[in-house]
Amino acid sequence: MSTPDQWPLWEVFVRSKNGLSHKHSGSLHAPDAEMALKNARDVYTRRSEGTSIWVVPSSAIVASAPDEKEVLFAPSDDKVYRHPTFYEIPDEVGHM
């Protein structure tokens, strides 16, 4: 469970000046969308102007399963992250 000072994770997509599309640059933590955008500008575009930035909460991303022929995968689910830290568990359930 998140504590009051934890900021959620956001994925950052940047289209460089004269670029054709937004590319995934990485992620960062921010308390809300406005700060995520500002932080993204500071962290991921420190070296250039005229860029367009998209930020998306990491939890909102839905990713495809890896191609069965190419790689190894266990039975699929469509969550990007399969681990406990990204699941919300109500307090009443206790420690899991």
């Binding site: 960062l28 500071d42 962290v43 420190r46």
Partner: peptide, 11 residues
């Protein structure tokens, strides 16, 4: 207070 803000203040 947090890494992202450290970077912002430096900017």
């Amino acid at each position: 207070p947090i890494l992202e803000e450290d970077i912002a203040l430096s900017n």
